[in-house]
Design a protein around this nucleic acid. Structure first.
Lengths: 145, 145
DNA sequence: CATATTTAAGAGTATTAATTCTTAATTAAC
DNA sequence: GTTAATTAAGAATTAATACTCTTAAATATG
């Protein structure tokens, strides 16, 4: 059951590392993150480039450069990251792949699936990086192995 | 948001065609189904081979042969098809791909995702091909374009 | 038994997603 | 201005999924 691409998963994990490890400097380097989370440096760089282009991150080149959240972490919702990385049409899918499934001609599981998607969407809309970062800091959940 | 593979989607759509188009003979040919649903004959043949191997379908070769449900349609649940085609570990996933996410060391969205998965699983467990076939026959929903 | 119809099996190809690699641009510090 | 540290851009490669093709086996019918 692959609901999110590796791109989104790595992106979110890396952002959660950032909010749960308040760094001293203004920018945190991608190298540090990939080293800590054991991710591919080049792959995460590409992912973060996308988030920078979408206005979710700031980036700064050169020594002591890196990336930083463009907004306070309590104002960045999971939905922002998912839509940025998966595409704005992320929720426009039919579970069974029926061509033309929609309100006018629903597939046999349309209403059920609509409800599930609404649950997921609302949770992503109402969950900020800050909230999850706090859970990690409170050690209710874990970021690492 | 791709929750099911094309394999599962085509497989379920084809089975729904079967239950909503009670054929005269004992077996329905794969060629008829793919012609009606505009699917690839060879691809669906491969998918149905898997369902036959898993005991969900019977198959019979030769003229007027084809495939048939191995059990009455009200005893074949969507979960049976999904697990057969996606694998038994279909629900063993972490939304964010955290390594080792589980009860002992949950990721920050573990409990939320657990709930969603339970909703999906229980719906798939409680929905039979017969139920969906009836909805199609009652024209509440559509199988075709 | 010859032919036509159908599924079985799996090799082969194409498309998409994931990952790696190479080169360039920016900036700080000496 | 030279060097080192860092992101930017996107080409190139690999892996996974989706799909197609070829050959074989089974079976009904004349």
């Amino acid at each position: 059951m692959k609901v999110l691409s590796q791109t989104s998963k790595y992106g979110i994990r890396a952002l959660l590392y950032m909010v749960s490890n308040p760094s001293t400097g203004e920018y945190v380097s991608i190298g540090e993150i990939t080293k800590e989370l054991n991710l591919s440096f080049h792959f995460l760089t590409k992912i973060f480039r996308e988030l920078t282009n979408k206005g979710i991150l700031y980036s700064y080149r050169g020594p002591s450069g890196g990336i930083a959240l463009a907004k306070p972490s309590d104002q960045i919702m999971l939905i922002d990251i998912v839509l940025a990385l998966e595409g704005e049409d992320y929720f426009d899918n039919c579970l069974l792949g029926f061509p033309g499934c929609g309100v006018e001609k629903p597939c046999p599981v349309h209403n059920f699936w609509k409800g599930i998607k609404e649950d997921i969407k609302s949770h992503l809309c109402n969950t900020s990086l800050a909230q999850l970062g706090e859970k990690i800091l409170a050690e209710e959940v874990r970021l690492f192995d």
